[in-house]
Amino acid sequence: MIGRIGSIYRAAAAAALLFTSLLPAASAGPRIDPAGDQRAFQAYFERAFPGVALDDFANGPYAVNKEMRKQWEEIMQFPPYDFALDDGKRLFEAPFKNGKSYADCFPDRGIGIRQSYPYFDLRSGEVVTLDLAINRCREQNGEKPLPYEVGDMAAIDAYMASTSRGKPFDIRIPDDPRALAAYENGKKFFYERRGQLNFSCASCHVQAAGRRMRGDILAPALGMLASFPIYRSDWGSMGTVDRRFVSCNEQVRSLPLKPEDEAYRDLEYFLSYMSNGVAIAGPGTRP
């Protein structure tokens, strides 16, 4: 038995070696084409879910499953994120010890800007998410950074998203090799299989989008981040994009990265860019 498995492994390894050695010859080197990727990505979901309007993809499983949508509409009559939204407004408006506030750190004083995050910062050469920008703002003003994923960070996110509702995702990828590399890195993370279950992000949220995984309906990847942060009934609380990435990684039994790890930021950059045109709908609710 062991010998047989061993030989299968050897055969697989040989095949992989053959494949990789053939690959560079078959294509003339990788071409990074975000705009082309985006067209193909959006077209895939339009074909998979005919009749679902682009903006509706922000509503994840509720866009593609009627029964779920009905429960969601009932929950949205008085959404459970209301408390976080109010906390977020209060936190956002509260001045720092030096008298400045979040509004001083952001364009348009932080109102109606969610759709432009993450962006690629040409000075530092990295992807800056809204949450990272929030903490950098705090540090510039002599405040301690907030923990990512939950609590105050999610509340501030919720408020900032709420002021941006209806504004389509507008992620730019500047013509800069570093920005293209970040995009490509995020794309790679999205399609790469990982963990004991050997799933990629795409296994669930592209290939099996709209289908049931036990009790859950898998959300389509298109528009997925437009309703963040979210109140998940499963969490019983709010969570940011980081919290979702960490928990997704854990669910496929892979070791999650730290929140705001460069790979997560690149992933958020890729996913948000794929959703350009989908209107911000956050904060949202999910099962």
Binding site: I75, Q77, F78, P80, F83, G236
Partner: peptide
């Protein structure tokens, strides 16, 4: 105890 967290009523 079977009423959901952050209970809603209409």
């Amino acid at each position: 105890p079977a009423v959901s967290k952050d209970p809603y009523l209409k």
